[in-house]
Amino acid sequence: MSILLEVLYLLVFPGFLFLIAYALFIEYVDRKLYARFQHRVGPPILQPFADIIKLLSKEDLVPKKADRKMVSAIPLFAFAAVITAFLYIPIWFNQSFFSFQGDLIVVLYLLSIPTLALFLAGWHSSNPFSQVGAMRAITQLFAYEVPFFLVLLGPAIIADSWSIIDIVNFQSSNFWLILMMPLGFIVAVIALQGKLERIPFDIPDAETEIVGGLLVEYVGRRLALFRMAIDIEMVVGAALISALFLGGFDAFISVAGLSPLAQFGIGFAAFLVKTLFIVFLLASIRALFARLRIDQMVTFCFKWLAPLSIIQLLLITGVKYMGWF
């Protein structure tokens, strides 16, 4: 029975099927918000789904110079990594399916894989534009990854645990950690924007400079897989930040005496609302800025984001040292 349940968890909810559906929905929300910010109409709700179907049905092409095996394998890696990362993030009460001490670190590393996969994809496409994009992607990686890791360690230090579920439980029994470290939350959202390679950090696939950048040689189902991977990365990133800073499934309601279904409903609703809120922030950032140059981006990350995250970390350790928590 428990094996059957685990398979269900993996394949249907909250694993594979739910994740794909939710990722496509999140992409729709993001595109729609972006369009409405710009006073446009935006896509209909099934548009991301239709895009994926269209890409899946397209002719499969690999550049002659490119390494066929690598080009085919890389999108799968990216896709698998982000799907795996999602399994460790709790989305309703105490249901930490595959949770263990240190899953936060695993999620962080799994979230780095898509960028590395994108770099390899761009590099192996043997196209000058994708190679320039690959170089920019890897340069950027070092810039945003440092502050991202640093600020996400804060909640772990406060909650005295490397497990995400413990951090969430700590928040529901105390308070949301955003109150304690608003600075960390802001840095995390900005760094996530860099991780997802969106404006103002869409330097690797700058449309007007290097055409499509990284994925310029990718067509058909490989591109579909990459796009899915990036969408899921957005869901995982939003869910991770909401779990670490916004209290995850916590909704200020005591659920002790309620039926499991009600517990699930409340927790799941909180999860949806919080991830959508973070997507709203991400879409706003995307609409607000112009694209930076790669040197400006690296300067910005090391001059502002990294020091801010270090200050945040020092404050947290200070609080911890004083024994206030």
Binding site: L33, A35, R36, F37, Q38, H39, R40, V41, G42, S284, A287, L288
Partner: peptide, 14 residues
């Protein structure tokens, strides 16, 4: 920021 959030509730220009 205020401009883009204001446009969220406006009818699109399209």
């Amino acid at each position: 920021l205020s401009e883009i959030w204001r446009h969220l509730i406006k009818k699109p220009a399209t």
